[in-house]
């Protein structure tokens, strides 16, 4: 990552473009306001206009803010990593209290990935999972709740590398059934449980 093209700036530029579009549409709204509301102190476009302009200012600040702080922070993280690896040799502690080093490491594990370890992340799995979610959203209604969810859970586990087939099938069957029973009999709401074609055959 170059020194000038930081993550902050990339996001800043994207949000600047979005805020400019938003501001344009916010000012464009005036055309559609009926006569009565034109003179009201609070109009449908009052807050959007303010938000649009404020968003532009905030994204510009994000873009032009100096990057020096970022380097200092990166150093701090590096030092902390060094500290953490030092503490690793101590092994697991017996009591309830975790050692400082372990806490530190746990905290690092909590932290989100940085652009630095981009390469090791499971991007393929993530993309496959997102695709699965989109397919599920699209066909949930037509495919019926129970089969759709069965495939979502099963394929989800497969994508993540799980191969304990019996457990997978059991879980993927029981979960949608349980939720469907809850929704239908406790909440009294309708979610078509099976594909449309089968439902039509069953009940007309």
């Amino acid at each position: 990552m170059s020194r000038f093209l930081t993550a902050d700036r990339i996001v800043g530029v994207i949000l600047l473009i979005l805020c400019c579009l938003f501001t344009y549409f916010a000012f464009d709204l005036a055309k559609t306001i009926p006569p009565f509301f034109k003179n009201q102190p609070m109009r449908v476009d009052t807050l959007p206009r303010i938000l649009g302009v404020a968003g532009i200012i905030a994204s510009v600040v994000t873009i032009i803010a100096p990057t020096t702080g970022a380097k200092a922070r990166a150093d701090a993280v590096k030092n902390a990593d060094a500290d953490a690896s030092k503490g690793e040799g101590e092994g697991a502690s017996e009591g309830e209290e975790l050692t400082q080093a372990q806490l530190k490491e746990n905290q690092d594990r909590m932290a989100d990935l940085s652009f630095a370890n981009f390469g090791q992340a499971k991007w393929g799995q993530l993309v496959a999972m997102i695709a699965l979610m989109i397919v599920y959203s699209t066909y949930l209604r037509a495919g019926g709740f129970i089969p759709s969810t069965f495939f979502l859970l099963l394929l989800g586990s497969i994508i993540l590398g799980e191969r304990r087939w019996i457990a997978m099938v059991m879980v993927s069957l029981v979960a949608p059934l349980a939720i469907w029973l809850l929704v239908t009999y406790v909440l009294d709401r309708t979610i078509p449980p099976l594909p449309k074609a089968i439902m039509n055959m069953l009940g007309g």
Partner: peptide
């Protein structure tokens, strides 16, 4: 959940038990 996918070690904290 996405971060848990990206980083399999995420949230696997120290300590055996």
């Amino acid at each position: 959940a996405f971060f848990l996918i990206l980083d399999p070690k995420r949230g696997q904290y120290k300590g055996d038990g």
